[in-house]
Amino acid sequence: MVNIKYFLQGFNSIKRLDSPALALGFCFIAIGALLKNLGFSIQESIFSTLLTYALPGSLVMAESLLVGASLLNIFLAVWLVNARLYPMTVSLMPLLLDKSQPKWKYYVSCHFIAVSAWLIMKSNYQSVEKKHRIDFWIGIGTATWSVAILGTAIGFFAADFLNKDIMIGLAVVNPVYFLCMMVGAMKTIQISLSVIFGIILGPLFFFISPEWSILFGGFIAGTIAFLVGEARGS
């Protein structure tokens, strides 16, 4: 079903010293504490990370619950903030698709698409033969997912000991870590321009529409980067 050798190779990739496990764990510790303060039980907190596993979406859900938003509003707000997962999936799955592998693996494992697992896979996929990449990916996804669930549980139980200063410290780890990871991925003109334009246009579009800023800013930034890269032969 799943090739254990490649699964473990993927799973173990988060054990490296510079793996995102640390930053990911910190972020979900903060989420666990936040959910407890919102009145979630431990089961509900774990259920949330288990099913959603995308940090900005969980944050939006928490904020929406706080202001008493309707289910439809929660759905739309989460969809908007997590719509970035669509281009992330389209830019990853073709690298993993192999006719010898069953389709369910792709539809199940797409649940693992979140920034940390995605960035690890993007920088490591070439080291694995195409046929086995999906099993390697399932390994990476299972590992990062487990860290997220464990982090949520730790955060939930440690909520009473996490004061405001610690929570602020945990909150800064996430953007700093992922910004460094993104900057580290700037190896071609297209990717470099995508990151630079995205950093500029995302916040700029916030002045026009806070809800749509990530999608609009990201779409325009990525399209310009693509066109410039194509014109220069990438």
Binding site: M88, G198, G202, G218, F219, F226
Partner: peptide, 14 residues
């Protein structure tokens, strides 16, 4: 691929 990196960068910057 460009859209994926740019939307992620936009999110982090935001």
């Amino acid at each position: 691929n460009c859209l994926a990196y740019s939307t992620l960068a936009a999110l982090i910057a935001r």
